[in-house]
Nucleic acid binder design. Structure first.
Lengths: 335, 335
DNA sequence: AACTTGTTTGCACAGGTGTGCAATGCCTGA
DNA sequence: TCAGGCATTGCACACCTGTGCAAACAAGTT
């Protein structure tokens, strides 16, 4: 049964303004041909009635809904929410609107999210969490929606891939620790390692091996503060505890720092140096003052928006650099 | 010009399955009359072609898009992102989908967000940030979209209002401080005080006055960690610094704690007690262990979803209770 | 066999919009 | 005055779906 919602339609405005419905449509379509007088009449009537163009119906015609689906897991995490904020802001500034789809880490959940995106004829889907099943990508392009993968390894022609210099950052982290005199380096990461986390850890481990200082490696739990506590405990309980730890995520680093200071009595950075990754807000708080790698959140967002604006035939791989932010968990090497 | 997006439509499926388009539509409409055999044929063809019902077109008919707009400012803040996560999760579990609209604090920005929501014929708009202009509410109901206001004072008939026992929590915070022997209570809040922040502070101040221990009141900046640093500095620089501080937000409390410990050498809770509000994730971290009020995020989300499910004629005011979580920034009164 | 009852199916319309096409009106130039 | 050019306008179609209505059909009853 058709439920009347009594929303104002272009037909209403046309009658009120004494013009044809086409004139109303043209008034709200940039670049269409309307005379200034009818345009004024239409605008006046629209304002009076509270008319807003129905984007659903418009999307039916133009095949561009203006909606971009953001598929994200664990969005109440500091880094995720920051990326989300930047992304929605840039999208809106570009006249698009974000549809937020929350998933857990399961394949089925992401699949459902993509079906949702397709059902709403989303212009594109930005995947911030894992997309394991390669068949899903085909499903997307078959339904004409563009795909953006952030920090994912899987290659998919036609999709935009955004990657960071993760391995190089890992190597740089080791280099920073070596230069201040660390001799027992360690890398701490989570067990549910995504590609980017793995690359960071490997970059660190390889650089350490090349320098003749093989790194201890510990991987525990999911990427969370609690896992950081466990990682710190495991590392510092060893017979030869590390004097420098690279954490693949700030959340892990916070846990490591807290357990190192409070349970093991370590002074930072005198006894122990710690480096994180992401540069979330808490890394700048006085309780941590964490030396960490800043992800170029704004650049990530901008490159996504500009790719969406382009015809999509442009290069489908964007590599951006995270850069080290020096704070107080590593002594400055300038001595 | 009509750009072909070559998405799979019901017509395509009908031809592939050798049935009428109506049969396809009925297959995907719960409760419609289709024989098992044609249903099977349709489902097989749909799966093969990758068909998904176009929710835009469906929304044009049923006048229910299934989209709920979430209008939120500063979503990269711990509490906001947690509420956002809970809300999207519950909405999805109920078969709806969230459209995320990011605003700054300006009136104009919220107005634009609401226009956006109307344009997409959103079923409802949930306002997490301020909505100052009363005329905007009329605009919403005139276009048939329902309104949910969280922690807002403005009364608007027909809209769902979700409120917390803010004033009572303020009083309870004072009571907790008084019971452990605080004699110089203070309340720290931000200058950009929303209604709920104001109620919390007033609840504290009134209870203090009633008890004959008038509270120092300080209001600085916006609700952020940095403002917390300034608040702590201002309060502890006084000639008679407080021995118990109620912060209207966890973010402020973290700043107060850090500056109290590191710059003023205060021990917590021996020299100074601190109580926050929100119970964000960081409040449970070892660096803070903040005693704070937990907002019932899940209940908030559930009551919104169930109100949306109902016909809306139900009670339009839901009052929920935040409850105190005891951690280590206030000594337990059990002695 | 004829009739009744109930299920399934296709036709056709509605919902709100953008736009090609033809028609209308206005203005300029000769 | 008339032709020609140009801006503006209205008609009608398309986009994709849900659903009322009548027709077709199957099955059971007398």
């Amino acid at each position: 049964m058709t439920i009347p919602r009594n929303a104002v339609s272009a037909k209403d405005v046309a009658e009120a303004a004494g013009v044809s419905r086409a004139a109303v449509s043209r008034t709200f379509t940039p670049g269409a041909s309307v005379s200034p007088t009818t345009r004024a009449k239409v605008l006046a009537a629209a304002e009076r009635l509270g008319y807003h163009v129905n984007h659903l119906a418009r999307g039916l015609i133009t095949a561009e809904s203006g909606i971009v689906a953001l598929i994200v897991a664990e969005l109440d995490t500091p880094f995720r929410s920051r990326l989300l904020a930047a992304l929605t802001e840039k999208l809106q500034a570009d006249g698009k609107v974000a549809m937020l789809i929350n998933t857990d880490r399961s394949d089925e959940s992401v699949k459902g999210a993509l079906r949702q995106a397709i059902s709403y004829r989303t212009d594109a889907a930005v995947v911030l969490s894992g997309m394991p099943d390669p068949a899903l990508g085909d499903l997307c392009i078959r339904n004409g929606l563009r795909l953006v993968l952030i920090n994912r390894e899987e290659g998919r022609p036609g999709a935009l891939h955004i990657r960071l210099n993760d391995a190089a950052c890992g190597a740089q982290a080791f280099e920073a620790l070596r230069r201040i005199g660390c001799v027992r380096p360690a890398v701490a990461t989570s067990r549910s390692a995504t590609t980017s986390l793995r690359l960071r850890a490997e970059g660190f481990a390889h650089a350490a091996e090349d320098a003749g200082l093989p790194a201890t490696r510990e991987a525990i739990g999911v990427t969370s503060y609690a896992a950081g506590l466990d990682l710190g405990t495991a590392l510092l309980s060893r017979s030869e505890p590390p004097d420098g730890i690279f954490c693949t995520t700030d959340l892990l680093a916070f846990g490591v720092l807290d357990v190192a200071r409070q349970r093991f009595g370590r002074r930072v950075p005198e006894d122990l140096s710690v480096i994180g990754f992401d540069d979330v807000a808490q890394a700048g708080w006085d309780a941590y003052r964490l030396t960490t790698f800043a992800q170029p959140v704004d650049e990530i967002s901008e490159s996504i928006v500009s790719w969406l604006d382009g015809n999509g035939a442009a290069d489908d791989l964007v590599e951006l650099d995270a850069h080290l932010v020096w704070r107080d968990t590593v002594s400055m090497p300038s001595r």
